[in-house]
Design a binder for these strands. Structure first.
Length: 349
DNA sequence: TCTGGGGTCCTTTATCGG
DNA sequence: TCTGCCGATAAAGGACCC
């Protein structure tokens, strides 16, 4: 059995622990409502007003004029996260961490008997609370997708166990959007075709599926909808790309300003490459226009590079290409590197 | 003055060498 | 020589997730 663990309103919960005067008041961790900020996490008091993650901070303020805004303190959350996962691993050593606030636990590695799964999950929940005072929700099932959906059923602080054999029946009545992999676009198309529940998705034929979502992806999501998910736990994943991007407070069209921004971001990317001792063969520049559309241009080099100047040089040339293909003021620029490889010094002699 | 920043993965299209 | 096809790889875009 697998368990999916999800920390409840993680960023907001940490802020409440650090400053008890915030507790119970509507709280948003995220960007400034007076500029282009969005909500990263809202605590449950704020959610009561309809405030949700990814909502613009300005909209959040409109829904609850008394809401308190706190900017994100990522390094603090990383510390708490370390403490959480350390506590988890003391009970379940085999885990796959997915991002800062969730992950999968291989309960079977401790006890293969499915009847012991609930007790193990309860022990994990208690250990997290004891170590950090944080609350988390857990889902327990035979595969990842069902465990993940289950962890979301009884938030906050919940534990939902789906016995083996009950996967499809558990998923069937749920809203189709609750299935991971169904985003806004797929949801819209499915609803237009009258598919509103996971169960309805599970019973679609291949042709309909192909027309609505696309062949390969459609078949995979239908399997998931049936509670079939062969993905194993990935206990170590290496990073594929490193990037930085920033939205300007006001749209920018001045080329020199954009170059300067790219240079700054290239320096940050280079610093992160250096920490890992890696070089990169691909540089990508991304721009976002006033109408929110995104364009990217990339080059792949014969040999890896790792200095800020080299990355910035390519990034600026790519920016020129993007802007000559489609001129216009930009609300965002970003630079990222991929095709990472270990940087090797030339062998001596 | 709606709409962040960090990513991953998949699909389509272009290009190039047999 | 021309054309078509095949496979590999890059590039670009789009959807999705936390």
């Amino acid at each position: 059995m697998i368990s999916h663990l999800d920390l409840d309103a993680f960023f907001a919960a940490v802020e409440e622990l650090e400053d008890p005067s915030l507790r119970g008041k509507p709280l948003v961790v995220g960007g400034d409502p007076r500029s282009r900020g969005v909500v990263a996490t809202a605590n449950y008091a704020a959610r009561h007003y309809g405030i949700r993650s990814a909502m613009s901070s300005a909209e959040a303020l409109r829904r609850c004029p008394g809401v308190i805004f706190v900017p994100p303190h990522m390094s603090l959350y990383v510390e708490y996260s370390h403490a959480v996962w350390q506590a988890v691993r003391e009970i379940i050593p085999v885990v796959e961490q997915v991002g800062i606030d969730e992950g999968y636990l291989d309960l079977a590695s401790v006890d293969p008997d499915p009847r012991q799964a609930r007790a193990l999950a309860e022990a994990v929940q208690a250990a997290v609370r004891a170590a950090t005072s944080l609350s988390c929700s857990l889902g327990v099932a035979s595969c990842k997708v069902v465990a993940k959906v289950a962890s979301d059923r009884r938030k906050p602080g919940g534990l939902t166990v789906v016995p083996p054999g009950r996967e499809a029946a558990f998923l069937a009545p749920l809203d189709v959007r609750t299935l991971p992999g169904i985003g806004p676009r797929a949801e819209e198309r499915l609803r237009a075709a009258g598919v509103d529940t996971v169960g309805a998705l599970a019973s679609l034929d291949g042709a309909t599926l192909g027309a609505l979502i696309g062949g390969k992806l459609g078949l995979m999501l239908r399997d998931r909808a049936r509670g079939i998910d062969p993905r194993p736990l990935e206990t170590s994943v290496e990073r594929i790309s490193i990037g930085h991007e920033e939205t300007f407070e006001r749209d920018v069209s001045d080329r020199e300003t954009l170059y300067a921004e790219l240079q700054r971001m290239a320096a940050r990317v280079a610093a992160r490459l250096a920490v890992r001792g890696d070089a990169a063969r691909t540089v990508t520049t991304k721009v976002r226009y006033q109408d929110f559309s995104i364009r990217s241009r990339s080059v792949t080099l014969a040999a890896g590079i790792d200095t800020a100047d080299e990355i910035a040089g390519h990034a600026c040339a790519l920016l020129d290409r993007a802007l000559s293909d489609r001129p216009g003021a930009l609300r965002l620029v970003g630079v990222s590197v991929s095709s990472l490889e270990p940087f090797r010094q030339l062998p001596l002699g």
